[in-house]
Design a protein around this nucleic acid. Structure first.
Lengths: 205, 205
DNA sequence: AGCGTACTGGGACGCTTGACCCACTTCGCC
DNA sequence: GGCGAAGTGGGTCAAGCGTCCCAGTACGCT
């Protein structure tokens, strides 16, 4: 059987954990369940990770990176129309995220579960903070890019609307996970985007 | 030692569970931890509750009721000033909630944890749905009351702004739990309230 | 060919979990 | 005074947990 390099096995375990926990929840992602999903033995797990917490921390970093990439891609794909305003761009990005959420609800739910877990565990708390700092930065970058592509600009510091955006996406995710009402969530996000642009953007005539 | 009626012991166990889980998280609320907090034996637990899940379901209902009462009280207390507009009312309600969140973060975090858990468990899923239906209804009532007290009225059906409100509060809670930045969260909520009123309210001159 | 490092299989350890059970006590009521 | 229902103490059960360990295997390098 072919040997895997240590880094690859780390990767494989993270991927396996993502599948198991996305499917059945954070609590279901025991070390045993994870290694079973990855087709490895327990020893391999503790050879690569010092502890389950280390896996969890890596998990957060990995998925955050993936989310950010998704959002950016959605925005880029949206800004093709030269007549589009910043609201159109952001709406498209929001829809992109919603599609991502619908396609794999477990992954997003897992992120929420991980965040809540990380806030409780002193060792993991910094990870959660970093996660939300990354979200805020990504939101700011998103706003900036949307403005740049449409010739608009933002009033005042970006931090405030960026935080509103993060709050919105977070809340929309939770709400959608409960009632799975995509139409209502889309309407909420659309309205919120309009509101955001109306307040913070300066759109050239 | 004085006997407690069955209903009282149910109540006492719920209260104990709330303390334990609010302090250390949903996962820490094992049956043993709960009965220890309540000063009872395991047998008493299973005499009153058929299972841990039954406790969890009751927990959600209990706390939801409490939250709604808090929000309504905050709104009522806020609408004293006759010159206040709907935005002032809602801002006050938001601040009331934020104060409540600061005073007992564990309780709100627990609600989030419970919701996420309920969404995963088929048996508990209806409870989560009902919970968010209650939130939406409460948000609608809040909007209605804010309008009534200030002589304003809302454009279109209340469901849409109500959903935005729920989304907002949910997201703000999560974000605050991570970074504990009260000022930023307050700013976010204030801005969001302004946005909401600007879009959905008809304020008389 | 042989050595040392990298890796793995499988079992074990000590502990906690939700659930259950049964002998026992307490109490209102006849 | 005694009976039956209500409630409890404490132990038990099987299952599952994270972690650890060690004997063994496979491979790259000299």
């Amino acid at each position: 059987m072919p040997r895997l390099a240590a880094g690859d096995r780390r990767e494989a375990l993270v991927e396996a954990a993502l599948r198991v926990m996305g499917r059945d929840g954070l609590a279901a992602g025991t070390t045993r369940a994870v290694v079973a999903e990855a087709g490895m033995s327990l020893a391999s797990f503790h050879y690569v990770f010092a502890s389950r917490d280390e896996l969890l921390a890596e998990l957060v970093r990995r998925v955050v990176g993936r989310e950010l990439a998704t959002a950016t891609a959605a925005l880029d794909a949206a800004a093709i129309d030269p007549a589009a305003g910043p609201a159109d761009c952001l709406r498209a990005a929001a829809r992109g995220y919603l599609g991502h959420l619908e396609a794999d609800p477990g992954a997003e739910q897992l992120m929420l579960e991980l965040t809540l877990h990380a806030v409780r565990e002193p060792d993991l708390r910094p990870v959660a903070r970093e996660q939300y700092r990354a979200y805020a930065a990504a939101a700011a970058a998103l706003l900036e890019r949307a403005a740049a592509r449409t010739g608009a600009r933002w009033r005042g510091p970006l931090a405030e609307p960026a935080r509103v955006l993060v709050t919105l996406v977070d809340g929309a995710t939770t709400t959608w996970l409960v009632d799975r009402d995509t139409a209502a969530t889309r309407a909420t996000l659309d309205a919120a985007v309009d509101l955001l642009v109306a307040r913070y953007a300066v759109v050239p005539a």
